[in-house]
Design a protein around this nucleic acid. Sequence first.
RNA 1: GGAGAGAUGCCGGAGUGGUUGAACGGGGCGGUCUCGAAAACCGUUAUUCUGCUUACGUGGAAUCGAGGGUUCGAAUCCCUCUCUCUCCGCCA
Length: 427
Amino acid sequence: MLDIKFIRENPEKVKQGIINKNEKDRIDEVLEIDQKRRELILLADELKSKRNQVSSKIPQMKKAGQDVSNLLAEMKTVSGQITELDSKLREIEENLNSILMYIPNIPHESVPVGKSAEDNVVVRQWLPEGFSFTSENGLKPLDHIEIGKKLNILDFERGAKISGSGFPVYKGKGATLERSLINFMLDYHLHNHNYSEIFPPFLVNEDSMKGTGQLPKMADDMYIINLDGLYPIPTAEVPITNLHRDEILNEKDLPIKYVGYSACFRREAGSYGKESKGFLRVHQFNKVEMVKFVKPETSFDELESLVKDAEDILQALNIPYRILMLCTGDLSFSASKCYDIETWSPAENKWLEASSCSNFVDFQARRANIRFRNEQTKKPEFVHTLNGSGLATSRLMVSLLENYQTPEGKVIVPKVLQKYTGFNLID
RNA sequence: GGAGAGAUGCCGGAGUGGUUGAACGGGGCGGUCUCGAAAACCGUUAUUCUGCUUACGUGGAAUCGAGGGUUCGAAUCCCUCUCUCUCCGCCA
């Protein structure tokens, strides 16, 4: 959520930011309602002040034996007016709030202005030693679905039977590989990047979904368990960021860095067909997520290091990748700045998004009311929150299987994973 | 699922209609004392909104789980909801 004071003071800046995000700008409406709201507050507070004054005098007057019946009658009228103003005010504030909840974060000034994914900027690229985009023997590499079938490690058909399409089943060495990947990534961030581990709940309440910005705007993309008012999480970002909802953190504890595994559940409404085969778009996948709570002045540096933390995993796995800076038009609702990491798929012959690292500045913190006490001013301030996948195993698995396949159609286990899997070849 | 108890500030814990933003204790912070520390003593200890000033500040309003209601006046009375705890049942 944007700060209403900031909107009040920088309406043009906010409008431009929203337009650059390809979103609808309702700022004039917001300012009008805000103006009305403040007028009402003034009126109501004045009456309440009067009521408080008189009410504290009444017992003294009674004691002194004075007649207070006129005052009581007068105050009854005042109270009625207050009730009326308060209910009007509540209505207006609800209206204002519901609009504000739909207004996206505005892009940081360093973000390139652009309309769509085509305007994203490639920042850098990393390729394993001796890597080539064209296969040496001229043969077309198998895609991950063919590999999965051939080696009997992935089963999309049975997943569709037991749950629906987009619910993959991992089998045998495939299941072990998936589990190993998760453990490897968690351990790596724990030991090399100084995160502490969280194993979060996979179902969260509505307040949590609002806190990180999934609701109300993205409701159609979320699963919901109506009976209990719970939502299966689309990412561990939601429970982990909400760990500190409605808290005031110590400045000396910042930055707080968490890493956690979770299954992720996404409806992906309306995305059937295109790019939806195999692992490319699924309803349930596994992800290791990094979340940071930081001081405002450090957040953009923290974003850079967050991306590097995710990159380290890919370098350790020796998988080709590139980094994109998303343009304003491709930025998500809550993000101020975001880098995507894409891994190379030789069979698809294209880059696949395997990670997204974002700085939300104070947008989520404001919604979720996550603050820290500034040691100098002694006042609470909103933290900045960041998160990044480190990484999502589904897309990563595509690149891993395809890049590590042998001409015979077997898959070599990356060296760093072998101590986790207990085998070094899938055949 | 059944029965009961409870929700107060950083923490513990009083408070059942009128200077209660909230006793008392603990913790934290500042100070006195000390070579230093402890002890003791003194002081201090929230957040949000809003007006004026916009550097500091200052006036007002609100906040005792959440939301309504009664009343001139509610932490205190009434209603609804949420959550926590205890016992029983069920269960990985």
